[in-house]
Amino acid sequence: MFDGASVVQALQDCGVTHVVWIPDSDIGRWETELRAAPHMQLLRVCREGEAIALAAGLKLGGKSPVVLIQCTGLFEAGDTLRNILHDLHVPLFLLIGVRSYRAHQRGESTDSCPVFTEPIVRAWQIPYVLLDERHAPADITAAYRRANAKDESFAVLLAE
């Protein structure tokens, strides 16, 4: 399971310097720990495309950011993702909350977010893994380190 303290620890273990985010009702619960993290800066933006571009600037400037957003913001940020990942070839690590995923799996939600998230991530040619309650923050650490070693973008989809 994921909570603010363990996710912050996982990101700090990876050497992440900045978390660029717009919260949703799940990942928003991590805010206290993210704000208090001694070695990471939490950067708030107004829209998710901004988060992608800001993180790219940080990366070009030598820092190690991650982007933490909801899938709805992923949908909005498409052109910026295309440009940063595929025109500029600046690799980014994305943590994306998938709204209603668990309810959708149980057949209890008509929210279309779970229907479109994985196809959209595949369409943008971003390697990804979907993590749910069977996984642990160590899986985020492992994914980050793999992506970093390959110098490639990666998305961790977090089942909400």
Binding site: G49, I52, A53, L54, L60, G62, T80, N83, D87
Partner: peptide, 19 residues
């Protein structure tokens, strides 16, 4: 160029925070 139209200030902010 090529850009994501509208995102230059955000890219610049990231660079400025890093440098």
């Amino acid at each position: 160029i090529p850009s994501a139209m509208g995102q230059a200030p955000s890219l610049g902010l990231g660079l400025a925070l890093a440098q």
